[in-house]
């Protein structure tokens, strides 16, 4: 979807851009991927900071786009490293598989490897609310301009000697904290993280799929005006 279409159909808010602005680019953005809006959302949020951006998803794209990706051989790490060296930032949807309930799946190690190899800062990105705005069973965005948030975390600099799995865990934790902000608030999400309350959902595998979808599509209690006239 084009950026303009995104801006017209949802109310997008982005936070944490100052962390990105203070680090020198190009960047590797590691994001969750709940819906088809995500690429456009992130591009829109980064329009001032990082005009040149290339998107890659771990799960291959279908159809024509997949062919295009293959043609450009975007999915090879070396190709990406070259792109980074020339100043283009990369947006990586690093989940191994895309869940159909909007929650975070396990991350592929490729992002961490790329970060270690090129030394570019890894910026965790949490996208909140886009699952609800454009769930898999819809073709158009839900009417009423639903709120979508793009949260950028602190960039992680991976040194040569770092363990990829450790870096990947760090990234996952950062993305989950961002996702938890919706329900617990900014401070609450960090408190929970500190107390170790949330590990990646897939590990627990507790809740039934429908319940997760139910929670993910719940109408958020958006701040509204107090109703005086009943």
């Amino acid at each position: 979807m084009s950026r303009l279409a995104v801006r017209l159909s949802v109310t997008a808010q982005s936070y944490g851009l100052e962390h990105v602005a203070e680090t020198k680019g190009p960047y590797i953005f590691v994001s969750n991927h709940p819906s088809e809006l995500d690429e456009a959302l992130v591009r829109d949020a980064l329009r001032h900071l990082s005009p040149r951006l290339v998107t890659v998803a771990v799960e291959p794209r279908r159809g024509i786009r997949g062919l295009v990706d293959q043609a450009l051989s975007l999915r090879s790490a070396s190709r990406l490293a070259v792109l980074l060296a020339s100043g283009t930032s990369v947006l990586l949807f690093a989940e191994k598989t895309r869940t159909d309930d909007g929650s975070l799946a396990q991350l592929d190690l490729g992002a961490a490897l790329l970060g270690i190899r090129t030394g570019a800062p890894l910026v965790p990105v949490s996208i909140v609310g886009s699952y609800r705005a454009l769930p898999p069973w819809r073709t158009t965005v839900e009417p009423g301009r639903p709120r979508v948030q793009v949260l950028f975390g602190r960039p992680i600099r991976a040194g040569v000697g770092d363990e990829p799995s450790a870096v990947t865990d760090e990234l996952a934790a950062a993305i989950s904290t961002g996702l938890a902000e919706e329900s617990r608030g900014w401070y609450g999400a960090r408190r929970s993280q500190a107390d170790g309350a949330h590990a990646p959902e897939t590990a627990a595998g507790g809740e039934a799929g429908w319940r997760k979808i139910w929670k993910a599509t719940a109408t958020p209690t958006s701040p509204s005006r107090r109703r005086v006239w009943q």
């Binding site: 608030g185 401070y187 609450g188 408190r191 958006s222 701040p223 005006r225």
Partner: peptide, 11 residues
């Protein structure tokens, strides 16, 4: 306006 803050639970 008078935005009623959300019922985000306190820490």
């Amino acid at each position: 306006g008078d935005i009623v803050t959300d019922s985000t639970p306190s820490p």
